[in-house]
Amino acid sequence: MSLLEVQDLTVRFRTEEGPVLAVDEASFSVATREVVALVGESGCGKSVTALALTDLLPRNASVAGAIQLNGVRPSPRARGRDIAYIFQEPMTSLNPVLTVGRQIGEVLKRHQGASSRARIIELLELVGIPLPGRRIGEYPHQLSGGMRQRVMIAMAVACRPKLLVADEPTTALDVTVQAGILDVLRNLRDEIGTALLLITHDLGVVADIADRVVVMYAGRVIEQAGVHRLFAHPTHPYTRGLLDAVPTPGRPVLKEIPGRVPVMRATSDACTFADRCWRVTEQCRSVRPVLEPGPAGHPARCWHPLGGKE
């Protein structure tokens, strides 16, 4: 039984330029203590999917589909208690006029009714902040980006959420700081048993920490597999393209995917990747591919999956 079950999640936005289909029948699950990476370029609907989990989308969004956490639909009251978030920008995600200790204490009070200095220090230690007794009284501008992101994580896990959603948690940070943050996230699973939904476009991060990968493209889930299987046998051409775009020692030229992510207005009877795919055929442009096990055994949404007989 999985912790989080998302079934046919569809998110539409009404905008001044017309409707936008941000997420198109996305289904995936996250098991207890599992680290699932949601991967894709910018604009593929990853963040929208994450925000939809606790109804955090702006008012012009309409959400359809089923989201269940332990079998029940998470209400806005689950925010911070059952499902907690970490965002991309640690520099601006902390309130500049409140001390670190007060901000963490606020979360504790809100969800557990009480906070204590000892508990706050414990949390700061959990996320690897040195000298927590001193940091507790400092303001965000006195901390580095990495330290602020650690504080954000401490706030997010203050109430031992069942699921932690980390939306590009390391994108704004240096590589060395990034490694430290990933260590913290890994520890959280071991120490408090939190499952992690990690949203990223950095496949290095994915390889480092994820158990399973869900690849999204233009609002659709196009492939999902265990992390080792995905890296060894990418089945969808888009996944392959993403992997090829990662710098590798010994390969001087990066291969990019031509074109850019389309903005979907409505659901279409075609593969959304067709315009950028080198294996495209007439079938791709007229019939919507289904997510079904490919040659490597894991599901991919492609009529011409890689790894099969050519």
Binding site: L51, T54, L56, P76, R77, A78, R79, G80, R81, A84, Y85, F87, E89, T92, S93, L94, N95, P96, V97, L98, E106, V107, R110, H111, M152, M155, A156
Partner: peptide
């Protein structure tokens, strides 16, 4: 529209908390 307000909402803060703890002190 600031990130820390969005972060507070995602952390479960209600309107009163957002207004009195996050917006008002920053407008002082």
């Amino acid at each position: 529209g600031m990130d820390f307000v969005a972060a507070a909402v995602a952390g479960g803060a209600g309107d009163a908390t957002v207004l009195l703890r996050h917006i008002l002190p920053n407008a002082v």
